[in-house]
Simulated scan of single mutants.
Amino acid sequence: MTPDKSDWTYAKGEQAQFQIMVLKNNVPLEGIDVKYRINPEKMDAWEEKTVTLKKGVATVKTQRFTEPGFLQCHASVEVDGKTYSSYATAGFSPEQIEPTTTLPPDFEQFWEEAKSDLAKIPVKPVLTRLPERCTDKVDVYHVSIDNIKGKIYGILCKPKAEGKYPAILHVPGAGIRPYYGDIWSAEKGIITFQIGIHGIPVNLDQIVYDNLGTGALNGYQIANLDDKDNYYYKRVYLGCVRAVDFIESIDCFNGRDIAVTGGSQGGALSIITAALDSRIDYLAAFYPALCDLTGYLNGRAGGWPHMFLDDFTNKPEKVENSKYYDVVNFARFVKVPGWYSWGYNDNVCPPTSMHAAYNVIPAPKELHLFPETQHWTFPEQQEQKNNWLFKKLLE
């Protein structure tokens, strides 16, 4: 599946054209029927048809896409009794996408009061050295710190050599899992602190996290959404600020340079932490979740966790409360340089939602698009991100 523009990007009002090929042993098949569907991402189909490949290829032209956004072409084929599918996504003036969510008038006051409540709680760090994870250059610790309504746990990696170092806060993607820390960056002269968000230790057996994921923490993303003071993510967002408090207390921290980075839920938390905490100097985010959550209520894709696709969550109080936690509204207040990267084919965090947040960021920013990627990264993306962060922190 390939659009007819090399960057997969068109101006709104243009027609996209998709080329469909079916390869077997890297050889195009001929005379085979392919079903295809064209739709704005996550929305109902505009067109569904079957086309026969001639000379190994079929070309599908879409109707004009008149608004900024994204249009997908999905195709499927049956070969030897098995069904295979793929899709490609065309972007139309994505830099013009505007958010559907709105900024509550007391947004800043709400979070200032929340941070004030957090500041009344001592950090009380407890560090447990993990000898089996330490290297000749890095000490590794399991860390517990006090957060509002519980604790935050994480893995600290710090260089053994005497000196003062910059720091990176790693914030996690969605789910419940153990963490192992970023030893690689610490060996290059950076303190790293990788946190979990659920208030449970991050060095337990996998079965503990599996049981929590299917039990008590199943659906945590929408827990208490009808109460903005007790919504699950309030403690999470404040926990990221508390993690910065802890970094500031580390004896070998240079007192100046802190970056925050993550992908998906972690991409969201990177933007949110940078907006909430002026001690953050740089952020690097892959495919941020929790962006423009109300998109689905306005006829277009909304961000993960797609809460407003479900009538159960489409209650007025839940919609209003979501605005206090939407990445878009934090993005408006980001003041530090940021590096961002995602793909047009992301089927977890729709690019419509991510561009809605990116487009309102007033700070210096750079977006590195890898259009064909879904909810994953190429090694080249990770390398670019690391090079950008290391240049900011170490040079």
Rank of each mutant, 00 (worst) to 15 (best):
P3T: 13
T273V: 08
I197R: 07
D117K: 09
T89Y: 00
N211I: 09
K335R: 15
Q194G: 07
G299C: 02
F92T: 00
D245K: 13
Y179A: 04
G56M: 12
E395K: 11
T59S: 05
V79P: 00
Q19K: 14
V202R: 08
Y233G: 04
Y296C: 01
S85H: 02
Y344W: 05
H198R: 03
E132T: 08
P351D: 08
N224M: 07
W339N: 01
I272L: 09
D210N: 05
S85V: 00
A11G: 11
F378I: 09
M307W: 15
K149R: 10
Y10T: 00
N39H: 13
S144T: 10
K24V: 09
R242N: 11
N230A: 03
E41Q: 11
I250R: 14
M21V: 12
Q72N: 14
I280F: 07
N314L: 01
V328W: 10
Y209G: 05
I361K: 14
D281C: 08
D311Q: 14
F370P: 00
E248Y: 06
P351N: 02
E98D: 01
I155C: 14
F308M: 02
N345I: 01
P125D: 06
Y87K: 06
G303C: 12
N329W: 08
G189S: 12
V123W: 04
S93Q: 03
W184F: 11
Y340W: 14
F390V: 06
N203S: 08
F330N: 05
K392R: 13
N147Y: 04
P305V: 12
D257G: 01
M21R: 15
P104Q: 11
I38G: 00
E78C: 02
V77H: 02
H142S: 14
T294V: 07
P28M: 08
I32P: 03
T128K: 15
V260T: 11
E78T: 13
D4A: 10
F70K: 02
L156N: 09
